[in-house]
């Protein structure tokens, strides 16, 4: 590999990292918020897929991709609210509900989405940051989608809000000690319902990115488990929104590895490189989890850490 193609690969990975990381970023921020309040929502995979489908459908019917994004978020709120409501019922396990909602979300998306596989919907525009360069490859790499930028600011805002706002303190309290939260007069179930719903909003928006920006069309194999990988990502990020951002970039870069290598003609092991995010997920879980110690930084009320 000569220097030119190495630069091409790196540039392609940079661009790919930003593109591929956006859904990871949104789902992981949603999951981070939900888990900070003491619940795990594995259903975000379903929210992601259903968000992708409904965002695409709305964009197709209204002609506005931003209405699609918003609609996908609203659908996510609905999914989150179902999870939050069911989990407050006695003897209900949040993980089981999450799996049920994951299957329901993907199944419903496939069912309603059949009609939208063919038609072309309006896609999200991207913002050009590469005007200063004459190199078309650089210009292309710096075509950044607006959701990525929104996601970055969302991560910073969440990080700040967990420390500096009443809501942030309440969510952290609820996730860390139900007993303490109840003693403070906090309605624990309501906080978790709201956190899960807002988390669902983020995941829905992440889904709309898949169908409206990259890859940019609706198909049934769109998500390929990104919603579930985002759960591993939150563990890796130790429940810190800023670390979620970094981890999402890392996952994005891993996901961009295969296409980037292909762009310079290395197609050997293409499928292997495409599997990089999955291998990374496995690796992270092995490194992060040990039978001998508990997870550091985990909200104490999570059903997996209790």
């Amino acid at each position: 590999m000569d220097d030119g193609s190495l630069a091409t690969v790196l540039l392609a990975m940079f661009a790919g990292a930003i593109r591929v990381s956006t859904p990871f970023l949104f789902v992981s921020l949603g999951e981070c918020l939900t888990e900070k309040s003491g619940r795990i929502n594995l259903g975000l995979e379903g929210t992601l897929v259903f968000g992708a489908m409904s965002g695409y459908a709305l964009s197709f019917h209204t002609g506005s991709p931003w209405i699609g994004v918003l609609g996908a978020g609203v659908v996510g709120v609905l999914f989150g609210a179902i999870h939050g409501y069911l989990c407050k019922l006695p003897k209900v396990n949040d993980i089981a509900i999450g799996i049920a909602l994951m299957l329901f979300g993907t199944g419903a998306a496939f069912f309603f989405g059949k009609a939208y596989i063919q038609p072309q919907a309006a896609r999200l525009p991207s913002i050009s940051f590469g005007g200063w360069s004459d190199d078309s490859a650089v210009q292309q790499a710096l075509e950044i989608n607006p959701l990525f930028i929104i996601g970055f600011f969302l991560a910073v805002a969440m990080w700040w809000a967990f420390k500096n706002t009443r809501w942030g303190l309440i969510v952290r309290t609820t996730g860390d000690s139900t007993a303490a939260a109840v003693a403070l007069g906090i309605n624990v179930d309501r906080v978790r319902l709201i956190a899960t719903s807002v988390g669902g909003f983020f995941a829905g928006v992440g889904g709309s990115f898949l169908s409206l920006s990259y890859p940019g069309s609706w198909s049934e194999g769109l998500s390929s488990g990104q919603g579930l990988m985002a759960v591993a990502l939150v563990i890796f990020a130790r429940w810190n929104p800023l670390a979620c951002f970094e981890a999402a970039i890392l996952f994005g870069a891993a996901g961009a590895l295969g296409p980037a290598l292909q762009s310079v003609g290395i197609s050997q092991g293409y499928h292997f490189f495409n599997a990089a995010p999955y291998i990374m997920t496995l690796g992270i879980l092995i490194v992060a989890v040990s039978p001998k110690r508990s997870l550091k930084g985990a909200p104490a009320e999570l059903s997996i850490t209790k």
């Binding site: 009443r166 303190l169 309440i170 952290r172 309290t173 860390d176 000690s177 303490a180 104490a300």
Partner: peptide, 13 residues
């Protein structure tokens, strides 16, 4: 007390 919050955060909350 909430274990992961600081003393100041615990008092304010």
């Amino acid at each position: 007390l909430v274990p992961s919050l600081t003393a100041a955060e615990n008092l304010v909350i």
